[in-house]
Simulated scan of single mutants.
Amino acid sequence: MATASRRALVAALVGALGATLGIAGAGHVYLRQWRRAIAWFVTGIGAFFVLVSLFVGDPTQVTVASLPLTVSIPFAVVMLLSTVDAYRLATVTERRQATTEGPTCPHCGKPIDEDLAFCQWCTEPLDGRNG
């Protein structure tokens, strides 16, 4: 299995695991896409609270087993979309990096300036280079 497809698969699996725990954006955390992970997490939590406030009579008496389908299904869709987005992001990023000309950072995969001893994107030192 190629590294690109393995990374995308792991991102999807981590996203699915996070979704089963009710945590949107877990796949994005694996990909180190922090803003996108936070956006998905806030969207998931916000969707849950909005749906509960609209469709549940007394939110203090709600349990996971007693959630109506009008809350469970849309929340599950948000979790699924988060997982699909993590998979798509990993595949698109890998394709973009494969088409990039010149050297790339072994840590983040972005193009690097050959005159620097570190990656200007992730600030990791590049092996075998003197500043």
Rank of each mutant, 00 (worst) to 15 (best):
Y87M: 12
Y87I: 00
Y87R: 13
R88L: 13
R88Q: 13
R88E: 06
R88G: 07
L89E: 11
A90P: 11
A90V: 08
A90T: 09
A90K: 14
A90W: 12
T91I: 06
T91C: 03
T91A: 12
V92Q: 15
V92M: 11
V92Y: 10
T93E: 15
T93C: 08
E94D: 13
E94P: 00
E94M: 11
E94R: 12
E94C: 03
R95S: 10
R95M: 04
R95V: 00
R95A: 10
R95Q: 12
R96C: 00
R96G: 00
Q97E: 12
Q97M: 13
Q97N: 10
Q97T: 07
Q97A: 13
A98D: 14
A98I: 07
A98G: 14
A98R: 15
A98L: 14
T99G: 11
T99V: 14
T99C: 09
T99P: 00
T99A: 15
T100F: 02
T100H: 14
T100K: 10
T100C: 08
T100G: 05
E101V: 09
E101I: 05
E101Y: 07
G102H: 10
G102A: 07
G102W: 12
G102P: 10
P103S: 05
P103H: 02
P103D: 03
P103K: 01
T104Q: 14
T104S: 14
T104E: 06
T104L: 14
C105Y: 09
C105D: 10
C105Q: 12
P106H: 06
P106E: 03
P106G: 03
P106S: 08
P106Y: 02
P106I: 01
H107I: 02
H107F: 10
H107W: 06
H107V: 08
C108D: 03
C108N: 04
C108I: 00
G109H: 07
G109Y: 03
P111T: 05
P111W: 09
P111A: 08
P111D: 10
I112S: 05
I112Y: 06
I112Q: 05
I112W: 01
I112A: 07
D113N: 10
E114S: 06
D115K: 15
D115Y: 08
L116N: 12
L116G: 01
L116W: 05
L116C: 04
L116S: 07
A117V: 02
A117H: 02
A117N: 04
F118S: 06
F118G: 04
F118N: 08
F118V: 10
C119V: 05
C119E: 07
Q120L: 08
Q120D: 06
Q120C: 00
Q120T: 03
Q120E: 09
Q120I: 03
Q120A: 09
W121R: 06
W121M: 03
C122P: 03
C122A: 06
C122T: 03
C122I: 04
T123W: 01
T123P: 01
T123K: 04
E124L: 04
E124K: 13
E124I: 04
E124T: 12
P125W: 05
P125M: 11
